[in-house]
Design a binder for these strands. Structure first.
Lengths: 221, 221
DNA sequence: AAGGCTAACTTAGCGGCGTTCACTCATAGC
DNA sequence: GCTATGAGTGAACGCCGCTAAGTTAGCCTT
């Protein structure tokens, strides 16, 4: 592994920032473990000395925060694409949930850093809100407008988010668990989450089992 | 902070193991961050030198694995207590879900290590299966027997587990997010998860929104 | 009671980590 | 040609997990 990098010309110092960020993301993907992404490893891959990283990132956490932003943006794009050809907003929710889990499983270490790490001082909560979660919220709001969901769109969105995240993060954190076939599991879970939220607002929450059974059996065709 | 520890008598060397484990858990709880639990910090708190830890734990990960086992056991006890006085198995599920999230929020760093960390080489998957998850599975199986849930209890249990874990881990990982009041959010989410799983098996999964609305509106009293 | 055996624990040190400070070097502008 | 400055480096600090070698103290044998 040579060190191909030449000193950048006068105005182009910031180019190094992009190279460092890309190297960090590549290392995460290739090694699959956050701990192997050390500043020395990143610097070595870029072909630069360690302190050079500090010219563009205040510290290691800032670099990881930049990684998170990339992940959030990629997730946003993925969810938009997944829901673009849905027939209705309820199906859009389901597709977004499935795409969310697939994204997490396809980029587990990126997802772990962005969504399962310790909360850092600067949580980009606005980024998330205006990005992927904002897109989810729009679909939820449409569902409320159509009448399939009822209640506060923000709370409904968080509940759906939590369901998708729960499945994704469990699958990532506990890969040895004897999971059933994933496609069916994920689709079933997101389906149940949507239907559950829709059904819950139409039912008294404190019904007895027998009452719940009686009501739900009416759903059968 | 003095170092009160005297050398243990001849047969009691293993007592140190318990002290180290307790110190690690206390440090986790007090500092609220895994990174501040270094072997030096643990050893200092116990009043012993660092290599002494290696007499009872193969490496740091083994110590953390022991912490995880404690957490799983405490979680198991919590879930058993929470569901002990439920009127029916469906309510037992709901109470377990609520208690699960409360446990995670009350012990966030313990929960993070046990459930949100990178999978270590020895995942105590059997421990989880025979403990807290086993207890959840029993309630699910009862629900299937009673007829409110339908399908594979293992898959249903995983889906409920994922929902509770999703809420818990999101709340821990994203504390800056503008969460609504937690009690209502948690109870609503677990309720919706149970009802959703029960309703899903009674519905064609590919109904259009309008069909879903029509069917679900029949649930209203 | 003396001495040895071994369990229990320590001292010293390795290499790797994030981070900092003082520095070199090349070039753009005068 | 000179110099100001942006781009990047070398060396070092303290903390980390971990290890090899050594030391201490109490039970057991004789």
């Amino acid at each position: 592994m040579p060190e191909p990098r030449k000193r950048a010309p006068r105005g182009q110092g910031a180019a190094l920032r992009g190279e460092v960020l890309r190297a960090a993301m590549d290392l995460l993907r290739e090694t699959g473990s956050e701990e192997s992404v050390s500043l020395r490893a990143v610097a070595g891959r870029v072909g630069v000395s360690v302190p050079s990283i500090y010219l563009h990132f205040a510290d290691k956490q800032s670099l990881l925060n930049a990684v998170c932003e990339q992940v959030f943006e990629a997730l946003h794009v993925t969810l938009k694409e997944a829901s673009s050809d849905a027939a209705d907003p309820f199906e859009a929710l389901r597709r977004q949930g499935v795409a969310y889990v697939q994204f997490a499983l396809a980029n587990p270490e990126h997802y772990r850093i962005a969504m399962m790490g310790a909360p850092s001082d600067y949580e980009p909560v606005d980024e998330v809100a205006s990005g992927a979660f904002g897109h989810l919220l729009a679909s939820v709001t449409s569902c409320v407008a159509v009448g399939v969901l009822e209640g506060d769109p923000l709370q409904l969105g968080m509940q759906l988010w939590a369901t998708a995240h729960g499945l994704a993060s469990l699958l990532i954190a506990k890969p040895r668990f004897p999971w059933p076939p994933l496609d069916e599991l994920v689709d079933s879970t997101m389906c149940a989450a949507g239907i559950g939220l829709a059904a819950q607002s139409r039912l008294d929450r404190d019904l007895s089992v027998d009452a719940v059974i009686a009501r739900l059996d009416a759903l059968r065709e």
